[in-house]
């Protein structure tokens, strides 16, 4: 476990953060960083996942690897879509179609039925659109750190259910967001809309939370309640707390509300799980 923690918890996020810093210093942004953010996060998740399990025969044996594959599909489609589309409607169409397409590939226990996969795809597409809308409004440090906290929930739940192979990739994506948020904090600026998380990043993060929770729930043999998995899947949408009518006009208060919204949803799912399982703390049992 130590090597994975060092590699995906520290090394990859550092590389990710350094790349982001270099881009910010050189300012060579012919394309917005947001176009690649989703691809980068999806790649981190994918690399981390395939280092845990062999991609060979994943369609029949290690079927959980459909999850990182679907995320990668969404990341690439939305990344390319971000480059060539500027209108909001076009981006929503691209995100929804890519998410539904990606989810249709997922063939994990409990989701063999195409109709159920389609419903999961539609639900994930709704989450990704809602996240894109809220990220579009305020793409700043508080947004990135909130999303970092939000992704901790499915990762911890997967770990508590005994599915370490799923917990590590989601945790790696969360660590990357954490590092990028620190870089963003250190280089304060009023960045344009397409910088940082952006369109593809929002879609990929929403998919990681929703599909990661769905995958964890599918393989779960412990007694983690469905409510906990549901809260974990919608944790990134806690950003909407900062958009409440009385809050959104005050930037500082809105930033704290965003962080609090994600933390409340993520912490609720973990607390429910710990309470039900009777565990005192997340543990990796080897």
């Amino acid at each position: 476990m130590e090597m994975q923690i060092l590699l995906f918890g520290i090394a990859l996020p550092v590389i990710f953060g350094v790349a982001f810093s270099v881009w910010r210093v050189t300012r060579s942004r012919e394309f917005g960083f947001g176009s690649f953010f989703g691809v980068a996060i999806a790649s981190v998740l994918f690399i981390s996942a395939i280092s845990e399990d062999s991609l060979q025969n994943f369609t029949t044996l290690n079927r959980w690897l459909w999850f990182p594959c679907s995320i990668l599909i969404c990341g690439f489609i939305t990344g390319i879509g971000d480059l060539f589309s500027r209108s909001f409607g076009a981006r929503v169409f691209i995100s929804c179609s890519s998410v539904i397409l990606g989810v249709l590939f997922i063939n994990i226990p409990g989701w063999e039925n195409v109709t159920s996969r389609l419903l999961l795809g539609v639900a994930t597409a709704v989450c990704s659109t809602l996240l894109f809308v809220v990220v579009r409004r305020r793409n700043c440090f508080s947004t990135i750190i909130s999303l970092c906290f939000a992704l901790i929930a499915p990762s911890v739940l997967a770990m508590l259910s005994g599915f370490a192979k799923l917990a590590i990739p989601i945790g790696a994506a969360s660590c990357c967001l954490g590092f990028v948020s620190l870089v963003r904090l250190a280089t304060q600026s009023n960045a344009p809309l397409n910088e940082c998380v952006g369109f593809s990043g929002a879609v990929v993060i929403a998919c990681i939370a929703a599909l990661g929770a769905a995958t964890g729930w599918s393989y779960d043999t412990s007694d983690i309640p469905v409510a906990a998995w549901l809260l974990a899947s919608i944790a990134p949408l806690g950003l909407w707390l900062g958009e409440l009518p009385t809050i959104h006009s005050r930037p500082t208060l809105s930033a704290w509300a965003r962080i609090l919204g994600c933390v409340i949803l993520a912490a609720s799912s973990i607390v429910i799980t710990v309470f039900v399982l009777g565990s005192s703390a997340p543990q990796i049992v080897e």
């Binding site: 959980w64 005994g162 370490a164 393989y219 412990s222």
Partner: peptide, 25 residues
């Protein structure tokens, strides 16, 4: 495979997960 037992609840969950026997699959 769902009958796997180690006399430790947490460990049993881990043994049933895709990390080991992947009993759902």
């Amino acid at each position: 495979t769902n009958s796997v037992s180690s006399a430790n609840k947490d460990l049993d969950s881990h043994l049933r997960s895709p990390d080991f026997f992947s009993v759902k699959e």
